[in-house]
Amino acid sequence: KSIMKVYCQICRKGDNEELLLLCDGCDKGCHTYCHRPKITTIPDGDWFCPACIAKA
């Protein structure tokens, strides 16, 4: 079994998992407080990182 360690693409830390959003496009993580602008609430439904939005 392989366990994927998810970490924030900005701060490179994997702590505060409850505030770590996973992109529905690329599965990369980003803390709500590292994202600019900050994300104050966990979004309902799908969330896409800035890189995936730029590709769309």
Rank of each mutant, 00 (worst) to 15 (best):
G29P: 03
K5V: 05
K13D: 11
A51N: 10
L21S: 05
C11W: 00
C30L: 10
K5T: 10
L20F: 14
I42Q: 05
L22S: 13
C52Y: 01
D15T: 04
L19V: 12
R12T: 11
L22P: 07
C34P: 01
L22W: 08
I42R: 10
P50Q: 00
I3C: 07
G45V: 06
L20Y: 08
I10A: 07
D24P: 10
T40D: 08
K28R: 08
L19G: 10
F48E: 11
P37D: 05
W47Y: 06
A51V: 08
P37F: 03
R12I: 13
A51Y: 02
L22N: 10
V6N: 07
K1E: 11
I3T: 10
C49Q: 00
E18D: 10
G14D: 10
G25H: 07
E18M: 11
H35E: 05
A56P: 02
W47D: 06
L20W: 02
E17R: 15
I39R: 07
H35D: 13
M4C: 10
K38T: 12
H35C: 09
Y33V: 05
W47F: 02
L22F: 13
H31W: 00
L19W: 11
C26E: 01
K28P: 01
G25V: 08
E17T: 09
D46P: 14
W47A: 05
T32W: 06
K28N: 11
R12H: 05
K1Y: 03
C30R: 12
T32A: 10
R36T: 15
S2A: 09
C30G: 12
C11P: 01
R12N: 08
K1D: 05
C49S: 00
P50A: 09
C8I: 00
D44V: 08
L20C: 12
C8M: 01
I10Y: 07
K55T: 15
D24Q: 15
A54S: 09
L20I: 07
C26T: 01
D27E: 15
D24G: 15
L19N: 14
S2I: 14
L21G: 04
D27Q: 06
T32N: 07
K38C: 07
A51W: 05
I10C: 15
I42E: 15
A51M: 13
C49I: 00
C11A: 00
K1S: 05
Y7Q: 11
C11D: 00
C26F: 00
I53Q: 11
C52N: 02
K28D: 10
Q9V: 06
S2T: 13
A54T: 11
H35N: 08
I3L: 05
C34W: 00
F48G: 10
E18S: 13
D46L: 04
F48Q: 11
E17Q: 15
K55E: 13
E17Y: 02
L21N: 04
I39D: 05
K55V: 12
Y33M: 11
I3G: 07
E17A: 15
M4S: 06
C30W: 14
I39Q: 10
F48Y: 14
D15F: 07
C8L: 00
I53C: 10
K13Q: 07
T32S: 14
K1F: 01
I53G: 11
H31A: 01
D24L: 11
K13G: 11
P37L: 05
Q9Y: 14
N16H: 13
C30T: 14
D27F: 02
D27K: 13
Y33W: 05
P43C: 08
G29L: 06
I39T: 07
I42L: 12
I3D: 14
G45L: 02
D46I: 03
S2F: 06
C49W: 00
P43R: 09
D27W: 09
D27T: 09
L21R: 12
G45N: 12
K38R: 07
T41D: 09
C52L: 00
T41I: 10
V6R: 14
K5H: 04
